[in-house]
Each structure stands twice: as structure tokens, then as C-alpha cells.
Amino acid sequence: MVERENSLLRDMPRLLVLSLLGLLLLMPYIWMVAASLKPADEIFRASLSLIPERLAIAENYGRVFELVPVGRYLLNGVIVCGGILAFQLIFAIPAGYALAKLNFRGRELAFGAVMLGLLVPPHVPALPLYAGFSQLGLLDTYTALIAPSTISVFAIFLFRQFFKSLPDDLIHAARLDGMSEMAIVWRVVLPNAWPAATAFAIFSVVAHWNDLFWPLIVVNTPEHATPALGVLFFRTTEGDDDFGALMAAAVVMTAPLVIAFLLAQRRFVEGIATTGLKG
């Protein structure tokens, strides 16, 4: 462990191995993009050339936008993820603060309930929730998409841990300064919750943007379909054969999150690594 910069030459084998592995891992992306640019006959020839002989961008991407309401799906994704995140934060931040810093009867019980909730995967309550939404006539609505995810015990747990690490003296000082408990939450705790909130936001958006299980259950029209469901719908309307257009659809639906990731790479990695308990 001589801690000095290895010469580039000595570092070469390591870089080479990593590059090869990285390339292998990127194969699905590379071929996805390549196929989305190729005309159908070229794809069917199964040539190993990545570069299309004739660019078919307009055909493939045009078909996607013509056949399915891409904008609608992306907008639905934003509405659903945004709605879920907003409610999760509204519910979890005050609750996390109460569990971390306030003394009240039943705190242990409440925290126990949170821990219990952490044990239950979201697939378990899905059946009764589905039956309930069906009874209320709420299937195929934003409500049905958003409501079940609004309570995140994981978020409560995360914020509780985060607030526990805030010094008690900060709260005491605020009380001595004459702030009410609500003012403390609003003016002292919230501004300090940002790091945890960003980390959780990234985790939550990635999870719900990519979720297929629940949207598949409660939505059956394109009107409320999320991007994940949109790809599935596209497959059923288009059949499995038009790979050029299917890959184009895949590129379009994957792009927003991947671009966001590439722009804020560090935040994403840290956000998901620090909140990685569930996923």
C-alpha cells in the first residue's frame, strides 16, 4: 500500500479490465440505441455492425410518438412521482422529528410500528388495497397510483435517524428564543432536513419511476399510464417484432432519469447508497 500515484503504464491493466467490464455492462444500452436508429430490414439481417447503413431515426422514433402518447406517459410519471414524493415528505418529516426529538407517551410503540412497517414489502398490502380502490371506483386514477405509496415508513425511519443526529441544544436554544413547537419544526428542523430530503427524494423518484407492479395492477388505460407501463403498452400494441420502434420507445422512456443521473451523478449514488435500505 505505497500511497503514491501509480504510473499510467502500471495502472493500464486495471484500467483495461475495468473498461472491458464496463463495456460489457453497457452492451444493452449500446445495442438499444443502435437498434433504435436502424431500419427494420437491417435489424432482421442481424448484422453485427453498430452503425446503421441508413439512419431510421424518423421512422422509429416517429412511430413511437405517433402510436403512443409519449408525452402523456412522461407527464404521468412526473405527476405520480412528484405526488408520491410530496406526500411522503409531508407525512414523514414531522413524524420523524416527533420520534427523534419529542418526549411523549407511546413513542416506543410508534417507533415499533415503524420498524414493523419496514419489514413488510409493498406487495403484501397490494391485494386488499386493490380491492378497496375497486370498491371505491378509484381504479385507473392518479389517486390509486399515488395513495398507497404516500406513507413511507422508511422515510420516517430515515428522518428520525437524521434528526436524532441534530444536536438537542439546537432545539433547546430555539425554545429559549421563544419559538413555539410548530415554529421550531418550520424554521429550525425543516431547513436542516435538506440533505436527508434530497437523498430520499432521489431514492423515491428512482423507485417509483421504475415501478411496474402497482401501476400494472390499478391502471389499464394510457390516460394514466406511467412510463414503465407505457413501454408495456407499446409492446402490446406494436407486437414484439418492430424492434427498431420498441428500442426507440425504450430509449425515450429511459432517457429522463438517465440524463438526470448523469447530470447529478454524485448525488444519485450517495442518495441511493445512503438510503439503500429498501429498494
Binding site: 467490464l21 464496463g22 455492462l25 453497457l26 444493452p28 444500452y29 445495442w31 438499444m32 428512482v206 419511476w209 421504475n210 411496474l212 412510463p227 414503465a228 407501463l229 413501454v231 408495456l232 409492446r235 420498441l246 428500442m247 420507445a249 425504450a250 430509449v251 422512456m253 429511459t254 432519469l257 438517465v258 438526470a260 443521473f261 451523478q265 444519485f268 449514488v269 441511493i272
Partner: peptide
Amino acid sequence: FFLPVVSLTVAMASA
């Protein structure tokens, strides 16, 4: 190596 984590699973499954 992290890219698949943030990619839409359904879309990548198609790929």
C-alpha cells in the same frame, strides 16, 4: 456500473 440501477427496468428488459 451504476447506470442499470437508475434505468427503467421495463425498457431495459426490452433491450
